[in-house]
């Protein structure tokens, strides 16, 4: 915080001299955000309290400030809300469990392969998100290699399939958001001075204790950033549920999607969007407060 303040003070020193430059630099970004974020949000907020025009066509709504739209929408989509947060939480925890050892290995043990491994982490972005998700349908499908393998090992029954299930949705989300978890984790692990780990070793802490008392606490900024970058998009995601799920695994994103585009029920969709935003915002705030990483960031 002190550092930030000093930066701000120094910036202030420059404004007095170079007046408008900072504002000029800010302008394009601010204009963009205003046009494509602030205005649509206001519009969306307006839509969320509209009601259908009496006797009008489908998709015609009028502003009546009916805040009860929110209660109705919530009551209709309660299970999907719960499912969204459950799946997002599961995907986040799974991604953390997979990414941490990966990021740790890249940061501390990869030697000259470091850059190659980092490229491999980012490589999936070179193909479309949608295609990669469809590919999982193949992998987990009857013709894929996973199902026969698991069946032959008697881990799953002969009639159990993996597609169109909650498992497939969570797996897909975990996979899709893995780089968002790995990269911040790597960045914060890489920043750890290896001598602090040596110091811990020197001060009678073995490998496990060093990890618990030094490495992990020092990687907290990466853990917080990674979990947020995974959880937030995962909670609002609808692609994985649409492609890999079944009617019992729909998430809030799918409900919003179908309300907008299929049922053309704009107010409910808008109200759900706002509630999702609010819920994520509240959860994230609590999370950041409790993780207490302010001074490490």
């Amino acid at each position: 915080m002190a550092y930030l303040q000093s930066v701000v003070t120094r910036a202030g020193y420059f404004t007095s001299k170079k007046g408008r430059l900072p504002y000029l630099l800010l302008f394009p970004g601010m204009l963009w955000l205003f046009t494509f974020f602030v205005l649509p949000i206001i519009n969306l907020a307006g839509t969320s309290t509209q009601t259908p025009v009496a006797g009008g066509e489908t998709g015609q709504y009028v502003q009546t400030f009916r805040f009860a739209n929110y209660i109705d929408a919530f009551n209709q989509a309660r299970p999907q809300f719960a499912r969204s947060f459950l799946y997002a939480t599961l995907a986040t925890l799974l991604a953390l469990a997979i990414s941490y050892p990966l990021a740790y290995a890249i940061a501390f043990r990869s030697g000259r392969f470091k850059n190659i491994l980092l490229v491999l982490v980012v490589a999936p972005f070179f193909t479309s998100f949608l295609l990669r998700t469809v590919a999982w349908k193949q992998i987990l499908g009857e013709q894929g290699f996973v199902v026969p393998a698991l069946r032959s090992m008697h881990i799953i029954g002969q009639n159990t399939s993996l597609t169109a299930s909650a498992l497939a949705v969570v797996t897909g989300m975990t996979y899709n958001f893995l780089p968002f978890m790995t990269l911040p984790l790597y960045a914060s692990l890489e920043r750890i001075d290896p001598r602090t780990l040596e110091a811990s070793n020197d001060l009678y802490a073995n490998g496990i204790t060093t990890f618990r008392k030094v490495t992990f606490p020092l990687s907290m900024p990466g853990v917080v950033a990674g979990t947020l970058l995974t959880f937030i998009p995962a909670a609002g995601d609808y692609v994985n549920a649409a492609i890999l799920g079944n009617p019992n695994t729909t998430m809030i994103g799918n409900v919003i999607d179908s309300r907008f585009f299929n049922i053309v029920d704009y107010p409910t969709a808008a109200a759900l969007s706002f509630m999702l935003m609010a819920a994520i915002l509240i959860l994230v705030t609590i999370y950041i407060r409790r993780s207490g990483t302010d001074e490490l960031v």
Binding site: D193, R195, T196, E198, A199, S200, D202, L203, V214, P217, L218, M220, L296
Partner: peptide, 14 residues
Amino acid sequence: PVNTVFQNYALFPH
């Protein structure tokens, strides 16, 4: 039974 004072101190920042 050996302890070290490291070159850049290596104190635990957290």
